[in-house]
Design a binder for these strands. Structure first.
Lengths: 350, 350
DNA sequence: ATGAAAGCGCTAACAC
DNA sequence: GTGTTAGCGCTTTCAT
């Protein structure tokens, strides 16, 4: 690692002052054509690169954006990061990544670290709906921030999320139309608003069909194994559900695994509707009926919102972007059978 | 965002000099018990945080580590990032993330950006085996760097990777023991050494069984769809393979999808061995026989190596860590059937 | 349109 | 053990 050239080297080589060199490099002030060319040449020859640490110190932006998600390993969040990273690079920003493992204490720590880096902006999928707001209230010096997927009710942050209520509603309608009367919803936690909305949508559909109160909600945490255990228990009850509405892609995986473990046929014995739509689902047999969320649009909207704020727009009121979900009917849902019959058969097979 | 307290504020409040305050904050020099306590108190009261931009400028480390991967969306890389991020946070480093989409030009650009941030170290899964070496040769000022999964032959970088040759060997042995004589290997590219090693391992097994030259190698690029198309074509030939050795998790997905699309029974008509072992595979039916790579160990080893170099050890010779794979025999592999029979049956079903 | 110079917050060298 | 001070590389007034 030889010593990197500084702006002074550039200036010297171009025969101008550092101020001029700086102005060329950043385009902050107009520079005469002749000197501009010479500076540009010097920059190219030296392989000069602005030292962001120094410019940040001087008060300019760091061109650093923080991104914080619960779990990179979850395709949904990974895709989000992927989308944001591409946009960030396009606009000359770098991405500082942190993950929280769904833990608010870790989130606070990580966020503190990011803020200490003087990030220009932050895109976050918070560990809980209120965590960012309370962090901000407790005096954290947050940069412009947009919340994705969670914390949508926040009065202080721009937010982007899917229309979960309608997503849940349509999934339930689909199931009801197939004759299902006993639905189980599999969710991570009752404390997350997006989960609550999906459940609310489902209840609305049930209510409209005169089926209010027939549904069960199963909370299984964030871990795949515990989710599987939770829905398995539900499936083993007397009078089990004929259909499962899995409220995230991890829940869908858990539901599939549980049904399979119990020797249940899908959709013969249980229908399953999942959430999200990613490559790995393509190889699932049966091919999962699912409520797809427009992840790439999440990334694009979040980035656009963030850029606007980072550009200095503090005046506009908080914006809440709601993106539509799309029900993709595939192979994992079918007509409901009398549940006793299905149950007896499964027992016999086992 | 109120103005952040500086070390001068801390020093003033604690009634000591900035040097003392700095030494407490960084533990660089011993400080008397009494002043230390007062400084610590001041730091806590003010919510002071070291400004890394400033300390970096002064020559100290940025405590920033770069990580560059081909595709965050691939669970393998996502898991790697996950592991590294946890370790980095434990040791007080932050992670600057970049992805390359398997493109060397993008890689160069992203790397340039990271280096401009004065990262203390870099963990990279390069777009090609030689890209980092040539970057370094062409004068890029790379910090301590460890290469993971690719570029293992590099004479300049520490590397961590799986024992791909043995992995391929064992997978092929398994298949041969089941009576398979016509194997197809599905790989991304012939230019990647890890792919080549998996293929070499397979060939060794074939050779030992007196079956040299019976295998076919199919290259399908990095895209799922093109991989699927490539292996589908192979499956439709006269005299198709009775077993597929898919050399990455994406290849496995593609093979599964292709076989399924052709109406082939797995493992009745074709056996499939995949690579990697992640959650989403749990729901695959049949449950995939696979060569698992110890991703968490990749992360741990890479981090350990990097920390050693970042701590200033430039003397030790380049280290090459080779981690063992584990063959997990599950449901997607079975005894081979006479291929004509299988082919005819599939035709009939179609 | 250009230059000189101040100083961002910090650490390390040097005094004491 | 503690304090003083000189810059790190940059942007940005303020002059010219």
């Amino acid at each position: 690692m030889a010593k990197a050239p500084t702006i002074r080297d550039v200036a010297a080589r171009a025969g101008v002052s550092v101020a001029t060199a700086s102005n060329v490099a950043n385009g902050n002030r107009p520079v005469g054509e002749a000197s501009r060319k010479r500076v540009l040449a010097a920059i190219a020859e030296l392989g000069y690169q602005v030292d962001r640490a120094a410019s940040a110190l001087r008060g300019a932006s760091t061109r650093l954006v923080g991104m914080i998600v619960p779990d990179i390993t979850n395709v949904f969040f990974a895709s989000l990061i992927h989308g944001v990273e591409a946009l960030a690079e396009r606009d000359g920003y770098d991405l500082l990544l942190a993950s929280t493992s769904e833990d608010e204490a870790i989130e606070r720590r990580r966020l503190h670290a990011l803020v200490g880096r003087r990030i220009d902006g932050l895109i976050a999928v918070p560990a809980s709906d209120g965590s960012m707001a309370s962090l901000a209230a407790s005096g954290a010096r947050l940069p412009p921030t947009v919340l994705v997927d969670r914390g949508a009710e926040s009065p202080v942050f721009d937010t982007v999320r899917a229309d979960c209520e309608t997503g849940g509603y349509e999934a339930a309608r689909h199931l009801i139309a197939l004759g299902h009367r006993d639905l189980a919803m599999l969710a991570h936690s009752g404390h997350l608003q997006n989960m609550a909305e999906r459940i609310a949508g489902c209840r609305r559909a049930l209510g409209e069909a005169g089926l209010a109160g027939r549904e069960r909600v199963v909370y299984g945490g964030h871990d795949l194994e515990s989710l599987r255990g939770a829905i398995e228990t539900e499936l083993q009850r007397a009078g089990p559900p004929t259909a499962i509405l899995a409220l995230t892609n991890v829940c869908a995986l858990a539901a599939l695994k549980a049904a399979r473990g119990l020797g249940l046929d899908i959709p013969g014995d249980v229908s399953i509707v999942g959430f999200d739509d990613f490559d790995w689902m393509l190889a699932l047999r049966p091919y999962l009926t699912t409520v797809a969320q427009p992840v790439d649009d999440f990334a694009a909207s979040a980035w656009a919102l963030l850029m606007r704020r980072m550009a200095g727009d503090v005046a506009s009121p908080v914006e809440r972007i709601l993106l539509p979900c799309a029900l993709k009917v595939r192979e994992s849902t079918g007509t409901a059978r009398p549940r006793l019959e299905a149950f007896a058969e499964a027992q016999a097979r086992a």
